[in-house]
Each structure stands twice: as C-alpha cells, then as structure tokens.
Design a protein around this nucleic acid. Structure first.
Lengths: 211, 211
DNA sequence: GTATGATTTAAACGTATGTTTTAATTCTGT
DNA sequence: ACAGAATTAAAACATACGTTTAAATCATAC
C-alpha cells in the first residue's frame, strides 16, 4: 500500500475523537484530517460513519472479551476441580482487572476504555445494540458464576447488584483523569493495580452484603 | 401571554429529547416542532441551544440539590444534638433517595433523571462544567459528612468509594427501563422504594468495608 | 512496459443545522 | 381605544455535515 495502513490510521483517529467528544459531536472531516487521509477514505474503507464506529468498537472489544471470558472459565474450572465455589471477588476480578489494565497498555487503548464507558451511557440506537450484542454471552456467564458463588441472593438482587457494579466500572472508565466533583486537597492518582484492588474491595462488599 | 408559557413548553420538549437522544443528536427544529412553537423562539427566549441546555438542567437540579442539602444538614444537626456521628447509610440516603424519587413524580421529571445521568457521562465542555458548578457545594458537604461517619477510612479511599457510588447512581438513572445486558427470565421491575433500599444495601456495604 | 485492479484525490451534491432578520401579531398600561 | 413593548411568525443566511462521483494515482502481475 502507498500510505502505511490508512484503515488503521482512521481507526486510531476515530477512536480518539469518539472517546473525547462523543460520536455525534465528531465529524468525519476532523477524523480524516487528524489521520492525514482523504475525507472519502472513510466511506471507501468502512461504508459509513456508523460502520466506522462499529469497527472501532469491535477491534478492541472482541479481544478484551476473549480475555475476560478465558479468565472466568479458567476460574470456574479450577474451582470445580477442588469441588468449591469460586469466591465472588475472584469472579469480579476476571471482569474488572482486564478492563482497567487496558489503561496501562498505551494511550490508544486508553481512548478505547473511555469510549467503552461512554457507549454504555449514550442513547441507544447507534452503538448500544452493537455493544450489547458483543457483551451478552460474557454477561450471562458472569451472572451464572456469581449466582453460583452467592446462592443465598435472589436473582433479582444479584441482577441489580451486578448492574450497580457495571455502572461504577463504566463511570471509572469514563472519568480516568479529572473527575474532581469533590476537589481533594491531596488527590494522588492511584496506580491501576491500587485502583483495581480498591474497586474490588468496594464491589465485593456490596455484592456479598446479606440483607 | 398568547400561548400558555412558551418557555415552559420548550423546556419540557427539550428535556425530553435531550434525555432520549442526547444533546448533539437533538435539533432545535424537532424541539420546537414537538413544543408547537416557532423555531426562533428558542433563540429569542434562551439565546442559544447551549443556553437552553443549561436552563433545562438548572430548572430541576437546583431544587433537587436544595432538598438533598436540606436533608443532609438536618441529619447532621440531629446527630450532633445526640452527640453521635450519623450512620453512613443515612448520609447516603439523603443523596440517593430524593434522586430516585423524582421518578415517581411524573414523566417530565423522569426525563430529567435520565438526562442528569447522561450528562455525567457526556464529554466535558458542554454541560459538564455547568453541572459540576451546581453540584460542588453539595458534594463537598457529602464528603465531609461521610468522612465524619467513617473516620477510619483514608481520604483517598473515601473519595474513590464515593466516586463508585455516584457512578452506580448515574448508571441507574440512565438505564431505568431497558437495561437488560443480562436478560433475566423474571425481570420484575422493583418499585422505586425497593430500588432505593437495594442500592443502599449495596452502597453502604461498599462504603463501610474495612480493608 | 503495459494493462488491470485497488486506492487516493479533489470536487460537488443534497441536506440539515444554529442563528439572524424583518415584519406581523399579541399583550399591557393608560 | 390606542400607543408602545413584548412576543410570534416566516423566511433567509451562512455553514457544516455525510455521502457520492469521476478522474488521477498507485501497486502488482503478466
């Protein structure tokens, strides 16, 4: 190819701008300008703006979900071998840890984390259906595993608590930098690992609460 | 006035459409058409589309925050009289309960709840700064109260846990109807009061976790 | 080296947007 | 009833958008 990978350059640029400004507030002209490619390249390579968004999402989401599902299945298998139920903290970890760890792997993936969090919040119709379609198998498995680990909870309670955890997670993913609704005197950014453990403390306690 | 309250009709229509489709995906033409007023009325009464968004937010947020702050101050005062620290569950309740109770007060406020949740997720620049400005005093007070109630937690831990709670809450506010990433067999929608208690169980446990 | 298919380019298309303008209309106070 | 201010109305404005077109350029295989 003449230009080194036009498609990838578009995907990177789109990922960054969608994550920063949102889907509707981002124009193809600014995406292609930042990627230093021609305006028509998006429609040539992807078909439409919406298809570009889908490509942006899928490029990262599928590998991520493979990792998450792999860790979850491995955990369940190991627990079964010892004839024990897996701890809810470990189950949640298989979902949370790979997600937040994306932030360490360079700024491109950082954009995706923010974008993912934002999609969960955007009005349905555009990306939500794509997203749900790619998340559903994992979520079902996660729900089953938690149900196994916390049999005393009703399905409704478990469902909502998982809902709460996902809400928190998507919030963290969106506001990785300057959230600061509460302006702290000393607001040292924790490391990703610290954040994971801090969130697991919170989420596990909320999950396991007997009430 | 000839038409009964053009401004209110615009605010209602805008609130509904901003909440449903998002700010950027909503046009002034569809807002004014739904409100059955002239297109130019928005710029005449509010000045611009962005100023309209601000008006939509402030109309509901200020009264809501007055209620929340009032309940919080009353709680703190009562606790001080008995020389005790308020329970973290009660503190969280002053914030969560008035928010979710908006959903019972008619469908107009329901729209606002969804919109509020969405603003927390939208890219900063448009509404975020408005929102933060109006939330800050309340959040500071909330943080102080929780710090009083949970003195064993470091400020950093407390800050993040409050962050998690707000994330969950905004997620609930956004997805009041069709969440269903996990398609439940029996997904009976709980009443608002049940939801409040269920969320308080979760959030309080996560907050109070000693680790 | 030239023909073929894939890609890039520049330009235009049709449409939709937020905003402004100017005139008509309605309300208010006397 | 009437003058003046406030509001509404219809139209136009300038601009930005996603998409399409048609020619130019490139890569590759014969």
């Amino acid at each position: 190819m003449s230009q080194p990978d036009t498609k990838q350059r578009i995907l990177n640029s789109a990922e960054h701008q969608f994550a920063t400004d949102g889907y509707h507030a981002t124009s193809l002209r600014s995406i292609t300008a930042a990627a230093a490619v021609n305006l028509a390249a998006v429609n040539y390579h992807f078909g439409s703006k919406e298809a570009l968004l889908e490509a942006v999402i899928i490029r990262r989401l599928d590998p991520l979900n493979k990792i998450r599902l792999g860790k979850l299945e491995a955990l369940l298998k190991k627990a079964e071998q010892v004839k024990e139920v897996p701890a809810s903290r470990d189950i949640l970890r298989t979902f949370i840890e790979p997600t937040l760890h994306l932030r360490q792997q360079g700024s491109d993936t950082e954009d995706f984390v923010a974008l993912t969090g934002r999609i969960l919040a955007e009005p349905r119709g555009v990306a939500m259906s794509i997203f749900i379609h790619h998340m559903e198998p994992l979520m079902i498995r996660l729900f089953q595993a938690l149900s196994l680990s916390l049999p005393e909870l009703s399905h409704q309670t478990l469902f909502w608590r998982l809902h709460f955890v996902i809400g928190s997670l998507s919030h963290i993913m969106r506001c990785h930098e300057r959230h600061s609704i509460v302006p702290e005197d000393i607001s040292i950014d924790p490391s990703v690992d610290e954040l994971v453990e801090m969130f697991l403390d919170f989420a596990t306690a909320g999950m396991e609460e007997t009430k």
